[in-house]
Amino acid sequence: MPATIAVILLLVIPVLLTIATTFGEAGGPFSTYAAFFKSGFRMAVLYRTLQIALITTAIALVVGFITAYVIAQMPGRLKSIMIIAAVFPLLTGVVVRSFAWLIILGKNGIVNNVLMSVGLIGEPLSMLYTQGSVIVAMVYLFVPLMILTLVGVLEGIPRDLIEAAASLGARPVPTFLQVILPLATPGLIVGAVLVFTGSFTSYATPQLLGGEKQMMMGTFLYQRAMVTFDWVGASTIAAIMVVITIGVVLIMSRMARRLNPMAV
């Protein structure tokens, strides 16, 4: 199949070659990694990236799950409208969606304008290029994805089961905790993996809203590759990103399989 050849030639081999270059350094095969893990600055970037990705995932899980739950209960017409309202931002580009937060959080932005006109602050706050601004934009970026993933999962829970729980005397809260939540767990894991890997590897959003101050792995990789032309350094970052992404996916998918109630 041409597609197989294309993936192997243009994806697998280039990525493996990129990773291979990190082992050919004069200081020994793992010297660039040793340098990475010893450098306070580089480790700070890795920690920051993990932290932002985890916080984004946690917020997106809660917000997405509640919203998806509400959508799943809506009657047909209203449900379609709500889903379309969630799809629209998802189909709008990441640059456009990140840019919106520049207008909102900027010096002349809405938040500053409102706070100043109310008289809460005298000087505009600088909210851009903080960890908070990156997280807000990331949550904004990934909540629609979480909603759509979870609506599908919740819709897949047969209504019969909810009715069976009610007929056996379960009130709404126990029904939620004992029936809906356990059945939605594999879907929650899928959603969490999508959001975590997406935010962990994002480039445009930290570039726009984090800048130099809030450098993340994606922006760090770009900076090393295209600004300082440190290709081995960039490849090291790339290798670490690949390992963490694949590791998270493997661990979580194993966990999802173990928690999957349908599995025998």
Partner: peptide, 13 residues
């Protein structure tokens, strides 16, 4: 009320 469903409606988990 005890209810027996057509599709059994057993909790799969």
């Amino acid at each position: 009320i005890g209810l027996v469903f057509q599709n059994y409606a057993l909790f799969p988990h």
